[in-house]
């Protein structure tokens, strides 16, 4: 199509300046209004009454304290489960061809397409007293729904695709050759994984874990359904934000919201750093292969 266009001049420089500036300013304006102002406002509202009040809002209220702790307890097991599952699953679908592989790949995406509220209800219908396993669980003194295990389960469910989705393209790009070479040179499965596969995929894994964790901490809908709304017991940070807001404690709500926003910003920073690391590593790898070729 573009054969007749001289490649010496980039098209963007050719655009008249009002178009360039107009587009840039429009994009900036949208970003400022939709992203920057709300984010800054969260911190402004949270800190409006000073640091001492902010600190008190976060740690003075036992229910808020518990919500922060609970979120820190719910997210890691969910992320860990998805880490193990994600690596195993990505491995299976990229290294083997088996019947049902396409279905598996589609199923992995299901938590993204199902509404979180529906996801929560699915678990209530499974583990609730009117569900299949509820009466058995109660007979054995186990609690899932309306308790921490239920929160972890639904969180793991809604964040399931993150690690797998991140890893499948990475593992597909790397290909099985290096693994096969390792095995043919006498490595056992464990050695192959840690010395050959892992170095290739670790950035992808970490990237997936970070995104997964961000979503796990911020999840509202699914957790709302299975939480039972018990203050100081099953309220995670996002649920606590809603409650505080509804109880006319706006500074408290914004204080908790600012912690969630801060975690999101940390996620963003980590993500950027990882992308940078990855690019660096690729550049180094390329450089080293070139020197090898010269020798």
């Amino acid at each position: 199509m573009q054969h007749n266009v001289k490649p010496t001049r980039s098209t963007s420089r050719g655009d008249p300046w009002p178009v360039r500036w107009g587009l840039t300013l429009a994009a900036l304006a949208v970003l400022i209004v939709l992203v920057l102002v709300p984010v800054v406002n969260v911190f402004y509202q949270a800190l409006e009454r000073g640091l001492a009040a902010y600190w008190h809002n976060l740690f003075g209220d036992p229910n808020t304290r518990h919500a922060i702790l609970l979120t820190l307890m719910v997210a890691p097991p969910a992320v860990l489960a998805n880490l193990v599952f994600g690596v195993a699953c990505a491995w299976a679908v990229t290294r083997f061809r088996f019947p049902g592989r396409a279905i598996l790949l589609t199923l992995i995406d299901l938590p993204f397409s199902v509404s979180p509220v529906v996801a929560g209800l699915m678990f209530v219908l499974l583990f609730g007293m009117q569900g299949y396993f509820g009466p058995w669980l109660r007979a054995h003194g186990l609690k899932i729904i309306f308790a921490t295990p239920g929160l972890i389960l639904v969180t793991a469910f809604v964040t399931l695709p993150f690690v797998v989705r991140e890893l499948v393209p990475v593992m597909e790009a790397v290909g099985p050759e290096e693994d096969e070479a390792a095995v043919s040179l006498g490595a056992n499965g464990w050695q192959m994984f840690w010395r050959v596969t892992w170095p290739n995929i670790r950035w992808g894994v970490l990237y997936g874990v970070i995104l997964c964790n961000a979503r796990a901490m911020g999840e509202f809908g699914a957790v709302y359904v299975v939480s039972g709304h018990i203050a100081g017991r099953t309220d995670t940070m996002p649920l606590r934000v809603e409650k505080l807001f509804q109880e006319y404690n706006t500074p408290g709500a914004f204080a908790v919201a600012s912690v969630l926003t801060f975690l999101a910003l940390v996620t963003l920073a980590l993500k950027t750093w990882l992308e940078h690391r990855e690019r660096q590593e690729i550049a180094e790898a390329l450089a080293s292969t070139k020197t090898k070729e010269k020798q």
Partner: peptide, 18 residues
């Protein structure tokens, strides 16, 4: 401990095992 939400869904939650 206190749990608060809309009355109908609270009844439902107790039925479900709250």
């Amino acid at each position: 401990e206190q749990s608060h939400a809309s009355s109908g869904s609270q009844a439902r939650a107790v039925l479900d095992g709250l």
